[in-house]
């Protein structure tokens, strides 16, 4: 079943189509949610909320662009809302607006580790860094867009991103992957 037909069937409320849509995109979207949160349980919560929104707003999808990209944007937005809503993230999501601008370094660190290991490293970052890094480096949002999304200035976004990037590069270089106790050890 192609995407167009799948969406139409979902809009008709067919359970089989809804399940197929979930099966088709849930793995990729859980990966997205996983990078924004600190635990798999939270990532699954975001995934649930996100898919509920997907089904609720599927009628607004106009088949312009890939369906996966549209769902991904919903997941990212849901993830950001989740971070703002939950106090355990909210305290860690503060952005220091007085930061001086950190220039982006030009070192071309080679990412040789696996995707899972890299995702784990990204999740080790403080929530603010983690969020901005994900939005800019992975999703491709500009700093102006990130500033609008998070309610900060684009300068703050740039500086936070630079810090996150430097930190992550140093970890990659050291290849210090921490696999367990991600959240409890904070």
């Amino acid at each position: 079943m192609d995407e167009r037909q799948l969406v139409r069937n979902c809009l008709k409320g067919k359970p089989a189509a809804q399940k197929e849509l979930f099966d088709r995109f849930s793995g990729q979207m859980l990966g997205v949610c996983y990078r924004y949160t600190k635990s798999l349980a939270d990532a699954e919560d975001v995934l649930q909320d996100g898919f509920v929104k997907v089904y609720r707003h599927l009628h607004t999808y106009k088949f312009e662009g890939e369906l996966g990209a549209w769902i991904r944007r919903i997941m990212v937005t849901t993830g950001l809302n989740f971070l703002k809503k939950h106090s355990r993230y909210r305290t860690d999501l503060s952005f220091d607006t007085n930061d001086t601008l950190h220039p982006v370094t030009d070192n071309d660190a080679e990412v040789t580790m696996s995707a899972k290991e890299l995702a784990e490293l990204i999740r080790q970052l403080p929530t603010g860094y983690q969020t901005i890094f994900n939005l800019h480096a992975v999703e491709g949002y500009t700093h102006v867009e990130i500033g609008e999304m998070l309610g900060i200035t684009d300068g703050t976004s740039r500086s936070q991103y630079a810090r996150a990037r430097n930190l992550l590069i140093s970890w990659v270089e050291k290849n210090s992957v921490i696999k367990n106790g991600l959240y409890a050890g904070k």
Partner: peptide, 19 residues
């Protein structure tokens, strides 16, 4: 900006988890 971001984006694009 550079290869680091490209490498991260590529890795993350293929990153999947089973719910």
């Amino acid at each position: 900006e550079n290869e680091f971001e490209k490498g991260v984006a590529e890795k993350m694009a293929e990153f999947r988890l089973q719910p």
